[in-house]
Design a binder for these strands. Structure first.
Lengths: 112, 112
DNA sequence: TGGACATATTCGTATATAAACATATCGTCA
DNA sequence: TGACGATATGTTTATATACGAATATGTCCA
């Protein structure tokens, strides 16, 4: 059926998300479907670089795309992706708060 | 305060997850805290490789660890990580079903 | 039909990552 | 204390990835 195993697909999705430019692309597309010509000016990257990042997200099933005349329009494929990103954020925040909590403890023990 | 920006931390978490060996490590640790000596035999990888993968997950805040005598015990830091992985799976599955749905449409159009 | 526009793709290069082997560190026990 | 067991860390090498410049592809319009 599918040539790729579920494990490989999981890795593909996570790898696609594991890049700062691609996370910012997703953030932009949170505002709805956009054509590449609207996306480009928001990034300090070459057109080829952005095009490739969009394609990586597309291949991973994270974005869908549609051609309209000479434009290509990208959109987030599934709102579940936003849930996933929110999960990542909450993990990051709880990790940060653990670290800073530890810092405070450390400062206190140094002062005393 | 924190030297790394939130964006960098998001990438760090996602990169840590974007590896098949590390996903399998997490799956194993779903069963609860384990020492490295219990983890090693479950993988066909060198001890140093597994140790480094565990450290990457630790640095990303995904695992916590605890030393007990000459053992080091690792555990999943936050159950939210399991929610995150479930989100990834559901995205993967919905992507697969879209693809196979498309295959079926294609087959049908070929037959007709 | 030719040319301008929008986007994708190819190519070379520089950096990041995973792997194993060898070695270092640290705790335990004789 | 010295040797062993458990784990972490340095080193090298092979492969993957991000980048921009140049080029190819496809669409619209005069």
């Amino acid at each position: 059926m599918t040539r790729e195993s579920v494990l490989e697909l999981r890795v593909k999705v996570l790898s696609a998300l594991a890049d700062p430019t691609r996370l910012e692309l997703l953030e932009l597309l949170t505002g709805g479907e956009r054509c590449v010509c609207e996306i480009l000016p928001a990034f300090q990257r070459s057109q080829s670089t952005i095009s490739k990042h969009l394609n990586i997200l597309y291949e991973a099933g994270i974005l869908e795309r549609r051609i309209d005349g000479k434009r290509t329009l990208y959109r987030i494929a599934d709102p579940g992706i936003l849930d996933l990103l929110r999960e990542v954020d909450s993990l990051v925040l709880s990790h940060i708060s653990k670290l800073t909590g530890a810092e405070k403890l450390l400062e206190k023990s140094i002062r005393n």
